[in-house]
Amino acid sequence: MLTSRIIPCLDIDNGRVVKGVKFANLRDAGDPVEQATRYEQDGADELVMLDVSATTSGRETALETVRAVRSALSIPLSVGGGVRSVEHALALLRAGADKVGVNSAAVENPSLLRELADKVGAQCVVLSIDAATRVEGNGWEVVTRAGTHRTGIDAIEWSASASSMGAGEILLTSFDQDGTRSGYDTDLLRAVRSLTTLPIIASGGADNSTHMLDALIAGADAVLAASIFHDNDTTPNAIKLELRASGIEVRT
């Protein structure tokens, strides 16, 4: 049986790991290869790296970081952040990413996912969705450009179209919950789960294994977290022991 995945996330800026709250206030949190290696040893099932560099030179550095992490890591590596073209995505795959996440660019150019999937297969293509509660409070809308742009697009309908657009997986981040450590948005997860059979990675809001259990029960196949692993509050293995005690199948 397929096990539930625990996925630490590294935000990378100019070759360094950083961490912020609600995509802002970045602070330095270490060397990517060192962190990635430690996470693998601590039981991570996969690693997500998001390039948050705002500059061209930062993005060049990100390719180097992917190469360095790939060479050390023997678990899957998914890379996203600022991927705007098929060429950029292919460069990340060649550098050693196993999957590439596309976020804002998919909203601006939905055919990008299909072009990419036709070249590398849907299993390498992740649709990253940042979903925020609508200002008027009904449902969720897709936000892009690190949460600064509200698109008005219904996040649930957007998720439901992921498979037909060419994605093989959905990375679903709750913009409201991100960095708050108050739990994943399980209503959002349930709503998306009811409309797609694609694997869903839940993201945004994790503080502990109970939050992860809630997300998995709500329909996530994998749970992503950044702060709790960066800050050494817990490890993927510790989380897994607790999840297993709750009846969730995990790799140990």
Binding site: L2, T3, R5, T197, P199, D221, A222
Partner: peptide
């Protein structure tokens, strides 16, 4: 679930 993405025994 397809694709099968993840770890299996």
């Amino acid at each position: 679930r397809t694709p099968q993405h993840g770890w299996n025994r």
